[in-house]
Write a protein that binds this DNA or RNA. Structure first.
Lengths: 182, 182
DNA sequence: CTCTTGTGTCCATGATGCTAAACAGGTTGC
DNA sequence: GCAACCTGTTTAGCATCATGGACACAAGAG
């Protein structure tokens, strides 16, 4: 069938946490147009679609390339980590099946209530990590989940993300990112 | 600036050797529309562009992904072949600068008495060719034969081989080999 | 409760895409 | 010569897109 431009746009917009009006403002179009496109009530001109995507920003190539069906796995349960270590050195690999990984490991500790800031982070590369102690609220794109000890995450750093300790005890995470930003 | 949809479409269409009318017929649109799009006199709707590309066929993702700037060179003039041989054995390479070549095509010219060297050649892949002018003595493994114009050869490059011009006039061969060694 | 501010949807109208057909130029064959 | 057929371009008119604004609903603040 035809490409579901509407669903794609809606997904992209929500991943970046924008309302129709906010996206419209950034793109220099009307909110009504965003609404009509997302409902597939119109087939936007390439020019219009480009304007809209410039507000994200995202290229037309990216837009038509992203797979809306199978989103890459973001959250991993305790039992979804792959053990690649030995008896005395346990190495449990996150996103083992994800191709072309390049990781730098960090150890992060969050005080109760601490967060990575009011604005969401967004930068090059990919990052992932494991909660060792405490509980952390992680927002990636439009999805939010509270992770506890043993649970993990892995996502592309270009998707806006934010960490916040919602527990009463310190939270500890073993994380990795690439390419190194520090 | 904006994506040059017109140039992209024209390039795609010509790569596939279609006229505006033929593409229009396959796509179920009018030839006028193809013309207008290629001139960037309109910004086609995504739906229309998809219809057009279905006539190729090509996906929207492909369409926006292809690099329209660096069009691979198709035709090479005599002086556009890169010389990689020596004085008495001239090897002129086709599409030398093209990245990720799968094939090495050479126009070889042997001066009278010239040879590829005292030791026999041996490398990966397969190679073959046709003698265009003169006579060449080709030794492959234990077999030797003299080939004249119109005659050809094909063998696995791992078998030791050697070329030698046994005639009194220059010998010219068009050869091909894969994977590329240059 | 009202008022404000956010969300997404709907509608009339002007802007633009798209079609059908005519047009102009080039090549082939009679 | 000209007729037939190809090529890409242009144009009038109709269909569709895109806008600006109204509308309905929900969540908070006072």
């Amino acid at each position: 069938m035809s490409i579901d431009v509407g669903a794609r746009l809606r997904r992209v917009r929500l991943i970046y946490g924008l309302s129709q009006r906010e996206l419209a403002r950034r793109a220099g179009v009307t909110n009504g147009l965003i609404s009509l496109i997302e409902q597939n009530r119109v087939s936007p001109s390439v020019g219009s679609l480009k304007k809209v995507l410039d507000g994200v920003p995202m290229s037309l190539a990216e837009f038509f390339t992203i797979n809306v069906d199978e989103a890459p796995q973001i959250f991993y349960g305790d039992d979804e980590l792959v053990e690649i270590g030995s008896d005395d050195v346990s190495l449990r690999l996150v996103a083992a099946q994800r191709p072309a990984r390049q990781l730098t490991i960090l150890r992060e500790r969050y005080a109760p209530g601490a967060a990575t800031g009011d604005d969401a982070l967004s930068h090059r590369g990919e990052e992932g990590g494991v909660v060792v102690r405490g509980r952390i609220e992680l927002t990636v794109g439009g999805t939010t989940r509270v992770l506890g000890p043993g649970e993990a995450y892995y996502f592309s750093s270009t998707i806006p993300h934010r960490f916040r300790n919602v527990g009463r005890e310190p939270c500890e995470i073993i994380s990795a990112s690439a390419p190194p930003t520090f």
